[in-house]
Nucleic acid binder design. Structure first.
Length: 707
DNA sequence: GCGTTTTTCGT
DNA sequence: CGAAAAACG
């Protein structure tokens, strides 16, 4: 593979030189031009937030200096069209090969697919690799070759695959630089003047860059990991790994994390250290959730905008921007929620447990549309990650096949103890006032609340999580005047509970009506247009500050059935409306599909729908009649690859980078149908028990029909 | 100790 | 809600 021309190594969210298969392949092939392309407008509404861009800026600088010490440097390009920019880079450097690592978010799946097609058509050899996951999504499936729909089963399989995840690669010793001088870098601007001040503080707490990521990993493994199972629920303990932003940008490979952690586990197991072993399992589970988020995103490319189970689209969301604002500012009147929201705003960071608290409060108490919350997380979290956050919010909203349901209100009658969903806010037990509020579980001494809500700092612990119950004298002594320097609860919990039940019964009513309509064939019966997910509205319409409604505790407030509207919080840098994009893409995909190179032996069915390559493979695996097939294969392969390919089976390895995850935008109709199918379900769990396979079957059948 | 009841917890 | 763990007697 060496010889004429150099290789482009296209860096994206794999900003490291160690265990970077694309870089390693480039180095193996000869001279390398490393390039990073900044085209955030392509991410649609998910233009990275301020802190995320701050991280990226520093991570890129770090990568550049690492590459320089190895013999080349990082070319940076500003672009509004990544694929044509790639093409330019190829032309100007005379490259003949392109290497990059897989991403699994819907934007990347589509863009990478196009990149591969376009460059392959230009005679460029495109090779891609798994660098982000233990296993590529299409490697993990059940015995029938179908993707898992529950996390537990998925993760169990991951941990018992017939082959281990790849061992991490060492960094290259030296990189032969391609003709980088023929391809000048653009200066990338990641923060504007107004953001610099806020960003200045970040550097005190965080150090982006791949070798800092390694340091964080080592620190964690040698320190807090062993206590992980004990401490994981404390809101402010420094016992998490703090790896998530590093992992998001690929500064450290998850496979390296996995291997090192596993080694520790074996060690502790030998010593009979049960707690340590358990800690590792728990930590690995959180790694597994990250894997699962990619898995879900790959198999259900719309999971960042549509509930996976369809009933939620009938939930009457409270569309109240005043609530939304109060939540963002940490002025809901619930100390733990408010402390969390202020920490998020101030630092871009939240402990996982607090994320659950604030997002549950958002969905279940305020009943605001979940996507608003997800968008806010995206804009403010240092480790904002589309797939992980989508999974998290869907989990909270009760729309995952294995998640808990939205309406988990326990035994209201039996014991006059009720909870608004398990771990979240409230556990009432008349007997134990100290544990009346869930806050005490995560923050038993109120230290976390006091840190982030100085106005409550002088309140005794007894009342710190429910100041509205405190006697007036106590409040006075603490210098608190509720409704003045700290808000009264924005929503009474009982009122919220009643409203939630009301909303849920409304949801099921609508859902049943819709199902009935479907069965009668009168599909349009119940305001489908109203209930159908709508894409993002024009920014102005949702601009949060345009019209702030008076804070009303009025129970009859605006409710809407569109859970798809997301206020725009970033200054509008968006290029096009989403519909336009997908329309555009649909055409493009259809047009280009026929042009997929078919000069490769494995590409036996070039005309096959490329809708979801993972699925295609899995079907092949299941039937066992044909080996897995990749409908898109890159042009030039060497003989080894072809042989590996033709002898492949379900447990094949993809070390040598033939596969690019493919998603074509016609999936939009696919997901709609998925949701549509699920509308026929009364409760997801019972349905799944009765028809454990129906998810996949209906799903995949639909898929092949769309072809 | 061990059957029974209570509490916890869940991606 | 239902399984698993803890607490009870």
């Amino acid at each position: 593979m060496s010889g004429r021309g150099c290789s482009i190594v296209w860096f994206r969210r794999d900003l490291r030189v160690e265990d970077n298969p694309a870089l390693a392949a480039g180095v193996r092939a000869g001279a390398v031009v490393a390039v990073f392309i900044w085209a955030p407008e392509e991410e649609g509404h998910y233009y990275p937030g301020r802190v995320s861009r701050w991280w990226l800026k520093h991570s890129l600088a770090y990568l550049d200096s690492s590459l320089k010490s190895l013999g080349t440097s990082l070319i940076t390009k500003r672009s509004t069209d990544t694929v044509s920019t790639l093409l330019e880079v190829v032309k100007s450097t005379g490259a003949t090969r392109l290497f990059f690592n897989h991403l699994y978010d819907p934007f990347s799946l589509d863009r990478d697919h196009r990149a591969k097609e376009v460059l392959t058509a230009q005679g460029i050899a495109v090779r891609t690799y798994n660098a982000d996951l233990l296993y590529d999504p299409w490697e993990v499936h059940d015995d029938q070759g179908l993707p898992f729909t529950t996390f537990a089963a998925f993760w169990e399989r991951c941990l018992s695959m017939p082959y281990d995840p790849e061992a991490p690669l060492l960094p290259p010793k030296r990189i032969t630089s391609g003709d980088v001088f023929r391809c000048p870098s653009d200066t990338l601007v990641f923060e504007d003047e107004s953001e610099k001040g806020s960003n200045a503080l970040l550097a005190r707490a965080w150090s982006p860059g791949w070798s800092n990521a390694n340091k964080a990993l080592t620190t964690f493994i040698n320190g807090p990991l062993i206590e992980y199972s004990m401490n994981r629920r404390k809101a402010d303990s420094a016992t998490t790994s703090f790896l998530s932003p590093h992992l998001h940008f690929g500064e450290v490979s998850v496979r390296k994390v996995f291997h090192l952690v596993r080694i520790k586990q074996v060690l502790w197991a030998n010593e009979g250290n049960k707690a340590g072993e358990e800690s590792v399992n728990l930590f690995l589970k959180s790694i597994g959730l990250r894997e699962y988020s990619r898995y879900m995103s790959f198999n259900h490319p719309h999971s960042h905008e549509r509930p996976l189970l369809g009933h939620l689209k009938f939930f009457p969301w409270v569309v109240d921007e005043g609530y939304f604002k109060a939540w963002r500012q940490g002025r809901t009147g619930y100390p733990l929620v408010d402390a969390g929201m202020r920490e998020l705003w101030a630092t871009g960071w939240l402990h996982d447990r607090i994320r659950v608290v604030v997002s549950s409060f958002f969905v279940k108490v305020l009943q605001l549309p979940w996507r608003w919350g997800m968008k806010y997380f995206w804009d403010t979290l240092l480790d904002a990650d589309l797939e992980s956050d989508a999974l998290g919010w869907q989990y909270i909203s009760g729309t995952l096949p294995d998640g808990r349901e939205l309406d988990r209100i326990d035994n209201p009658q039996i014991k006059s103890v009720w909870r608004l969903c398990p771990t979240e806010l409230i556990v009432v037990g008349a007997v134990k006032p100290a544990y009346e509020f869930e806050g005490y579980k995560f923050d038993p001494n109120g230290e976390y609340v006091r840190r982030w809500l100085p106005e409550l700092a002088r309140l005794p612990t007894e009342w710190i999580h429910h100041p509205w119950n405190a006697p007036e004298s106590v409040l006075q002594a603490a210098g608190i005047e509720l409704g003045s320097n700290y808000p009264l609860p924005i929503v009474e919990i009982d009122a919220a509970k009643a409203r939630l039940q009301e909303a849920l019964s409304e949801m099921w009513q609508h859902e049943a009506a819709s199902r009935a309509a479907l069965e009668n064939g009168t599909e349009e019966g119940l305001g489908e247009s109203e209930a159908l997910p709508v894409a993002f509205p024009p920014d102005t319409q949702m601009d949060v500050d345009v019209h702030e409604p008076a804070r009303n505790n009025n129970p009859t407030m605006a409710r809407r059935y569109e859970d798809q509207m997301v206020p725009s919080m970033t200054s509008s840098l968006l290029r096009v409306e989403e519909e336009e994009v997908s329309l555009d893409l649909r055409n493009r995909a259809t047009d280009s599909r026929a042009e997929v190179p078919t000069n490769v032996n494995v590409n036996q069915e070039p005309r096959r729908e490329v809708l979801n390559q993972g699925v295609m493979q899995l079907q092949a695996v299941r039937s066992n009649a044909t080996p897995p097939q990749f409908n898109i294969r890159i042009g030039l392969q060497n003989a080894e690859d072809s042989m590996a390919e033709s002898s492949s089976n379900s447990s094949r390895r993809e070390r040598d980078g033939g596969v690019v995850p493919v998603w074509s935008p016609s999936t939009s109709s696919y997901s709609e149908q998925f949701v549509g199918e699920e509308n026929g379900i009364g409760t997801s769990s019972s349905f799944l028990q009765r028809h454990p396979q129906s998810h996949q079957l209906m799903n995949w059948r639909r898929l092949s029909q769309t072809g």
